[in-house]
Design a protein around this nucleic acid. Structure first.
Length: 673
RNA sequence: GCCGACUUGGCGCAAUUGGUAGCGCACCUAACUUGUAAUUAGGGGGUUACGGGUUCAAGUCCCGUAGUCGGCCCCA
């Protein structure tokens, strides 16, 4: 990020027909323009009277163009070194760009270096980007050797480009080609089918870019298609911006929950158990237990009933629920049990398939259905920390955020249609309030609506459900982002997205309406008028899964948890052995009031102890020597190195106790009130 | 699942062209007892992920399996 924010140039009105290049002549910082909302090359014609907004390179529009143009330079470099490489697509993305190629051999890191070098040469050559509108015939001619481009030309008519980058290649309406032209000779050196716009010259790319990595990617995003080699890069207006970006990446790396989990001895994934299956160590166990205990208390206050269900079930349950139809691929394969086969090969007793449960809802439904229900019992809120198992594909497993075994803080609310909206509102408020207890405060909502290719139930029911959710979302006052087609097959949902300490967003809670399962399981209740009615079901999980939420909090706090969640809350460090007994009395008193406190009586020297416990991110180090003992006091040292010395013991205990109860994050002396 | 890279004591890393495994931290022992981020000395610990193969010789080369990482696809 630039320290100095350059003022955005003001829009100008073209007094006569002209071009952007003429209009902004001599203003090197202007690389493109917006006319009537459209982002255009400076070379484009402007009609008289048009209002033209100049685009500078460091603006969001400018960066988008810069990244796109850098992608072109990369592609040219790749083809200049490897003329056999066939072009895929090469759009700008958040913070950078990528370009896909079909090549015989995958790229190596050495290839990347060579490409980067060639890119620098292309930059220095100052090639012009020239836009040309072509007919389909002409385009087919120009890209006769580029099979993927030909495929895109064929697609041009169909408007459903979606968001997978193809629309960057072929603009709506007309086909355009961008040609890189040698500024001296006027020769066309390279070209790509592209909607644009682009920088006027490769020279404007400067040195704020880098090639990051290679990866495979399916052509047009479908695993049915061939995998191409994708090169990812990043590009910024200046070298400083690039460095700032790289520093941001590094910060995120430092917070990686997998790294912190090992460093702080919180959890691990033993190979012997299996991929995506975590064990929590004692330190992680404390955090997890605190998280769960607090959640249980809040659920109790909120009128939830606690239920327990098994981890495994006969297939019948998921046949009724429909999960086997839709998600069998994501489930662990069944165990076939109880079959008896006569020696002659005849099956004399039919066996049964048992599945590890991938979802808790059908079991909660059976609890509801175990007897007849009255409207007086509704809403019934069944809550469970339910362990579920999903057979995630090996390539997607990722730390605690994508696992094969997890525990959901899952609840299913059975309510009447009339109370549905009240209950949804209440649920959403509860969700947000609980997330705030854990220190997340910055939210927005996402409303996922029907996927027309993957749903059950009638359209009216979906509409009604969606409408209700939209209303509840609007009433929350939070920002609402639509997610068309993102719903599960059985109902629309609202998900709560939280921003963490370094601005990344995580999908947290979901509140999901379900008109389908009550139908499938034939759920009913007796209404006030004596008729039998069908309840509506709300699925909701606040953490998503405890494992995932744990990972998110770990990254959010970079391992420095609020006091109530810290595995060790206080470590006592005597200045010399002589003061150990005195300090140990303080530690004992703390333990007595429920504080996780320890005395470091090892024979390390004091400075070493401070270092050790600071690295372990213990919130309070209590130090005592002669001065403190004489005064009946202790001295605080905090994570950031700040101190508060000579605090009377009673006061110290009270301060620590209250910092736990109030869930505050204490990193320095100023955080302790 | 697909593509690529990687896998050396608990953690982070090292081992010239294949010649038979080292360092730091952590751990253990001893001495030292010092007011805010590393006291000193000694010691233990690895059949180099696993299984094959090539070779006089494999951590180094080849094949397979598992796991991890980065993407793609997927995410009830």
């Amino acid at each position: 990020m630039s320290e100095i924010v350059s003022p955005s140039p003001a829009p100008v009105t073209a007094s006569e027909a002209t071009t952007g290049a003429q209009l902004f002549e001599g203003q090197r910082s202007i690389v493109a323009m917006r006319v009537d909302g459209a982002l255009l090359d400076l070379s484009r014609e402007i009609r008289a009277g048009a209002v033209v907004t100049p685009v500078t390179i460091e603006s969001p529009d400018g960066l988008y163009i810069l990244r796109h143009s850098t992608a072109h330079v990369l592609a040219q470099a790749v083809q200049s070194i490897n003329p056999e490489a066939k072009l895929g697509i090469g759009p700008p993305i958040t913070d950078g760009f990528y370009f896909d190629f079909d090549v015989e051999e995958p790229f190596t890191p050495e290839d990347l270096k060579a490409f980067a070098k060639e890119m620098e040469r292309i930059q220095r050559a100052g090639q012009r980007f020239e836009r040309r509108v072509v007919s389909e015939t002409e385009a087919r001619d120009l890209f006769a050797a580029e099979p993927y481009k030909l495929e895109l030309i064929g697609l041009k008519g169909s408007a459903d480009d979606g968001d997978n980058g193809e629309s960057v290649e072929v603009g709506g309406g007309e086909l355009t080609v961008y040609e890189n032209v040698d500024p001296k000779t006027g020769d066309v050196i390279w070209r790509d089918l592209c909607r644009g716009p682009h920088l006027p010259s490769t020279r404007l790319i400067q040195n704020g870019w880098a090639l990051n990595r290679v990866a495979a990617a399916y052509w047009r995003g479908s695993e049915k298609n061939k995998q191409l080699q994708r090169i990812y890069g990043t590009a910024w207006a200046t070298k400083d911006d690039l460095r700032a970006y790289q520093a941001r990446i590094e910060e995120a790396l430092k917070r990686d929950h997998r790294k912190l989990g090992a460093e702080l001895d919180l959890f691990s994934f033993p190979d012997e158990i299996g991929s995506g299956l975590a064990v929590f160590h004692p330190n992680g166990g404390i955090i997890r237990k605190e998280m769960e205990d607090h959640s249980r208390r809040r659920h109790e206050e909120e009128g939830y009933d606690f239920v327990w269900t098994p981890h495994i079930t006969k297939s019948t349950l998921y046949e009724i629920s429909g999960h086997l139809d839709w998600y069998a691929d994501g489930m662990f394969p069944p165990m076939h049990l109880d079959e008896v086969v006569h020696p002659d090969g005849q099956v004399t007793r039919q066996g049964a398939d048992y599945y590890l449960k991938p979802m808790n809802c059908p079991m909660h439904i059976l609890i509801y259905r175990s007897r007849s229900r009255s409207y007086r019992e509704l809403p019934m809120r069944a809550f469970e920390f339910g362990s579920v198992y999903r057979y995630e594909k090996s390539g997607v497993i990722h730390g605690l955020t994508r696992v094969r075994g997890m525990t959901q803080d899952d609840a299913h609310i059975f309510t009447s249609q009339e109370d549905m909206k009240t209950e949804l509102t209440r649920t959403l408020n509860f969700v947000l309030s609980l997330l705030r207890d854990y220190g997340l405060t910055d939210f927005y909502l996402e409303l996922s609506t029907k996927d027309p290719d993957k749903y059950v139930g009638s359209d009216e029911v979906w509409e009604q459900a969606t409408e209700t959710l939209a209303q509840v979302a609007a009433e929350s006052g939070l920002e609402l982002v639509p997610d068309p087609g993102g719903a599960a097959f059985y109902g629309p949902k609202i998900s709560v997205q939280a921003r963490d300490a370094i601005g990344r967003t995580w999908q947290m809670s979901t509140v999901q309406l379900d008109f389908n399962l009550p139908e499938r399981f034939g759920l009913e209740y007796a209404a006030a008028d004596g008729t039998r009615q069908r309840p509506v079901m709300i699925h909701r999980a606040l953490f998503g899964s405890i494992e995932r939420f744990f990972g998110v909090l770990l990254e959010h706090y970079a391992g420095a948890f609020p006091v109530w969640l810290s595995p060790v809350q206080v470590v006592g460090i005597p200045v010399a052995e002589e003061y150990a007994d005195y300090l140990n009395d303080v530690i004992r008193a703390l333990k007595k009031s429920g504080v996780r406190a320890e005395l470091d009586a090892s024979d390390d020297r004091m400075q070493k102890k401070i270092r050790t416990h600071t690295k372990a991110k213990v919130p309070f180090q209590l130090i005592a020597g002669e001065d403190d003992r004489a005064a009946g006091a202790v001295s605080f040292r905090f994570r950031d190195g700040t101190q508060r010395n000579g605090v009377p013991v009673d006061e110290a205990i009270a301060l620590i106790r209250s910092s736990i109860d109030s869930h505050v994050l204490v990193n320095g002396v100023d955080d302790l009130s």
